[in-house]
Computed example of a mutant assay.
Amino acid sequence: MFVSYGQYYLQGDDFLSAYDDTDTIGRIFAGNSLAAGGPEHLTVLAGTHTGWIRLTTQHCADEPLPPGKEWETVVDVSICSTTGILRLFRWGGDVEEDAGNFATAGAGWYRVRVQARGRDDGDAHEGDSPVEEHFLSVWPAPPQPDAVLRANDALARTHYDPARPPGQPVQP
């Protein structure tokens, strides 16, 4: 996946027309350090500013197995699909059609687990071969506060504070 400005997204069809979330990046830095969502969208923050990351995606019927120890930072975030469409997007609006629709149960609430490793290496990396890897799992689930399962890279250690209350789901 090619990222620009260290970002990629899940977006629904109504995100830019019916919803606007100008504070998503601020909520990432003030929250779990990796992802924040709202109605019709999720923003993920990579360490790589501009370049390629390895991204694996998974559509799940239920919560996936716990993450392996190889993942440095892992968070679960709730988002709501009002249209029954959630697709993978690059910064600038290019959709990754091959990834499919992540709103597998139609309109409603979903939980997204974002797992990352190599964000520290990605921050300093220049070149065409990716050094950062993400794994994105999405499944239908009622809304819940953000859960930080692990926060072990420099970006997480700088911005995530376990003493702060967890981020809450943003209602449509």
Results as ranks from 00 to 15, higher is better:
3 V>H: 13
5 Y>K: 04
5 Y>E: 11
6 G>L: 01
9 Y>F: 02
13 D>G: 13
14 D>W: 06
14 D>R: 04
14 D>L: 14
17 S>M: 01
18 A>L: 13
18 A>E: 12
19 Y>R: 01
19 Y>M: 00
21 D>T: 00
21 D>E: 01
23 D>S: 03
24 T>S: 11
31 G>C: 03
31 G>K: 04
33 S>E: 03
41 H>M: 14
45 L>D: 04
46 A>R: 12
47 G>F: 04
50 T>P: 04
50 T>W: 12
51 G>W: 00
52 W>V: 13
53 I>G: 01
57 T>D: 07
58 Q>Y: 08
58 Q>D: 00
58 Q>F: 08
60 C>N: 09
63 E>I: 03
65 L>P: 07
66 P>Q: 04
67 P>A: 15
68 G>P: 13
68 G>N: 05
69 K>T: 14
69 K>Y: 12
71 W>M: 07
72 E>R: 11
74 V>N: 07
78 S>R: 05
79 I>T: 11
82 T>W: 14
83 T>N: 08
91 W>N: 08
92 G>P: 11
93 G>E: 03
98 D>K: 09
100 G>H: 00
101 N>Q: 07
110 Y>M: 01
112 V>M: 10
116 A>L: 08
120 D>C: 05
123 D>C: 10
125 H>I: 00
128 D>P: 12
129 S>Y: 15
132 E>P: 02
134 H>D: 03
139 W>E: 04
140 P>R: 12
140 P>A: 10
143 P>V: 06
146 D>V: 15
146 D>H: 10
146 D>G: 09
147 A>H: 13
149 L>Q: 10
154 A>E: 15
156 A>R: 09
156 A>N: 06
159 H>Y: 15
160 Y>K: 05
160 Y>M: 01
161 D>V: 08
161 D>H: 09
162 P>M: 03
165 P>R: 09
171 Q>K: 08
171 Q>N: 05
171 Q>D: 15
172 P>C: 06
